[in-house]
Design a binder for these strands. Structure first.
Length: 252
DNA sequence: CTCCAGGGATGAT
DNA sequence: ATCATCCATGGA
């Protein structure tokens, strides 16, 4: 168990982990218990420093980066937060939100983990370290339903099999444009516009991606399009992407 | 007990 | 194209 300290400027760990972009971190003592990839981690923040205890990965030596680098990468400490916030549209809602969310970063999640958890995203808080796609793929719908996945079991299983078989290569999709990536993700069972945008934002670093869930939709309609009737989901998506721009995901 | 939760797929207008 | 319904499960 390695203990390290690493600087983390302009970062709020609790805000970041509590923002709904990632599900498996649990509050423990003064910090959080979770995992970065398949590496178990406990992390707590002391002002501008992260104190991190890392366990080993099950299959050692595949990871060649140094620990501080892994941490900085996972929490996206290199994102130029001040610049990003300065690029937001200047309106009352965004000013309030930006102030409230200071230090919130869009982290870099492993692709399969992010995809799988957002397919299951109406099931909160059950997952710790998510099984690999091939473990899910080798399962059965019946076994998955025992995990209280409900009807989502079918979608998770079908998507896991596409990923585990190599029919879909999540890593290679990173080379695609935003539009193409969204389309390809949308072909996966259980992945519609909302989940596709979450995965784009949280696992493919597409900071324009703007996931619209029911709550965000309510906020948008109330604060930005108060009297707009005839504004369907696709239309709303287009409007927001235009308005919030290159860092739409951070705005969201 | 009733309601509904951070959606998506499907079949009906 | 756009809309309504169903889908399991669990917590408030």
């Amino acid at each position: 168990m390695k203990l390290i300290e690493t600087p983390a400027l302009d970062f709020d760990l609790a805000m970041t982990l509590g923002s709904g972009q990632v599900f498996h971190w649990e509050k423990l003592g003064d910090g959080f218990l979770g995992a970065m990839g398949d590496r178990p981690v406990y992390v707590e923040q002391r002002e501008d420093v992260l104190k991190v205890r890392c366990g080993e990965t099950p299959q050692p030596a595949r990871e060649t980066r140094a620990l501080p680098r892994i941490i900085a990468d996972y929490f996206a400490l290199d994102h130029p937060l001040a610049e990003i916030c300065a690029s937001f549209p200047d309106d009352p809602v965004m000013r309030a939100a930006t102030k409230f969310c200071r230090g919130l970063r869009i982290i870099r999640q492993p692709k399969w983990e992010c995809l799988a958890t957002f397919i299951c995203s109406s099931m909160k808080q059950v997952v710790h370290i998510f099984p690999k796609a091939d473990r899910i793929a080798g399962s059965s719908e019946k076994e998955l339903r025992k995990c209280a996945l409900g009807y989502r079991a079918k979608n998770l299983l079908a998507t896991a099999r596409l990923v585990a078989s190599g029919d879909v290569d999540l890593e290679k999709l990173a080379a695609l444009s935003d539009v193409d990536l969204c389309a390809r993700l949308g072909e996966l069972p259980g992945v519609g516009a909302k989940v596709a945008n979450c995965v784009m934002l949280f696992a493919y670093e597409r900071l324009r991606a703007f996931p619209i869930d029911v709550w965000i939709e309510r906020v948008l309609r109330e604060k930005y399009f108060p009297r707009a009737r005839r504004l369907n989901a696709a239309r709303l998506q287009a409007c927001t992407e235009g308005y919030f721009g290159d860092h739409g995901g951070y705005s969201q």
